[in-house]
Design a protein around this nucleic acid. Structure first.
Lengths: 115, 115
DNA sequence: TTAGTATATAGGCATATGCTTATATACGCA
DNA sequence: TGCGTATATAAGCATATGCCTATATACTAA
């Protein structure tokens, strides 16, 4: 059972490395509850759009998150088919939810995705 | 229950950052089953002793591992009192055991600690 | 087609990281 | 005490990382 779910050290270290950045970890924790697009992350982290795009790209490249175009926006979400998905989830569920960021976003009228 | 065990994003990202290095992650996976000293890691990773010491130091500084002098050697082990301990364990148990490294060590007659 | 918005990519820069060699410190034992 | 072994620290270097600005691309809607 454990062996079945086992992820290689190489893969795991790559995943953990990406999760070792505070910004990305927060993004992932948010994505665990809410899909988001780049412009929402820009607002939440008060960071330049290219910086957000780069963080998102790294996570997408490795397969942790997936994208779905929705009109003008590209909505990102956790990729439940990623073979490190259960590890990611087991980590994220030990972190405090980041709903305050979403609430702030809504208050500002900047929430885009609807889920 | 989750909230009780929750680790801050800051703390978690610091832990995950350290775990995001393949060498350190392997060390931790080994330590989950066997205490080890620096010279054993040097043998296992075929890496300079200062490099090993630096990896170990980072993990000790943050509190993930603890040390115990045993005569000439300093034996390192996971620190079960670390407040991210359960997160670390939940990650490590999803990784393949690294017993082959220990076996090789014993075969070479380089195993030091006895547990 | 054109303007506006969302996102991606390119290039540059400051800092962080991981490794090395050289050296210092700590302990065990003759 | 003095030597051998184990570990830590210092300094240097090459590469990686995360951020920025500038610019390109993609889509919507007038």
């Amino acid at each position: 059972m454990l062996a079945q779910d086992a992820v290689s050290i190489e893969k795991a270290s790559a995943v953990l490395k990406l999760m070792g950045d505070k910004t990305r970890l927060t993004m992932l924790r948010i994505l665990a509850d809410h899909d988001c697009c780049v412009c929402e992350f820009v607002e939440i982290f008060q960071m330049s759009q290219p910086s957000v795009s780069q963080h998102v790209r790294k996570m997408k490249d490795i397969g942790m998150i997936k994208e779905q175009r929705r009109g003008q926006w590209i909505v990102y979400s956790l990729n439940e088919k990623f073979d490190g998905y259960s590890m990611i989830q087991s980590i994220l569920k030990q972190l405090p939810d980041q709903d305050h960021h979403l609430e702030e976003l809504i208050q500002k009228g900047k929430r885009v995705s609807c889920n």
